[in-house]
Amino acid sequence: MLPPDEPLAEIACRVNGRAVRGRAALRQTLVEWLRADLGLTGSHVGCAHGVCGACHVRLDGAVVRGCLVLAAQADGATVETIEAAGGPEEAALRDAFVAHAGLQCGFCTPGMILQAAELLQRNPAPSREAIRDALSGNYCRCTGYHAIVDAVEAAARALRGPAATA
């Protein structure tokens, strides 16, 4: 229970397709609010200072650092997290990350998948270099990235259809 003097914000927004009303401490970041109040723990807090990318969420359609947006700023916005992100890109990426072992501990993975999905929406056939570039703001401490790049490449191929795999 927060003490009565803690400043709060009223938030009404859409989260993962549903209308949500709630309150957050003003100084709570979006990712903290999603995790603690809405139980959406798929986005992770790895650094809380905007470097690691584990907290990525989609805010009004664009992937952002969830630790660098205040929960109060989500009032009126549309938020999407890894729990619901279900476009064709995310589906293909999920399959490919699993098949290619593009994750180990999995802490960075939700942020990786959201960022990679945004890449594939813009560039359906990225080079390995372009994949590395797009994911440069998402740290992985486990895989050495190679398998992640493999997975994104494979997802891109799968999305382009059978002709692309030849």
Partner: peptide, 12 residues
């Protein structure tokens, strides 16, 4: 475990 983790179902 990967299936769960890619879906945001990790329990850290």
């Amino acid at each position: 475990a990967s299936r769960r983790l890619v879906a945001g179902g990790g329990r850290f």
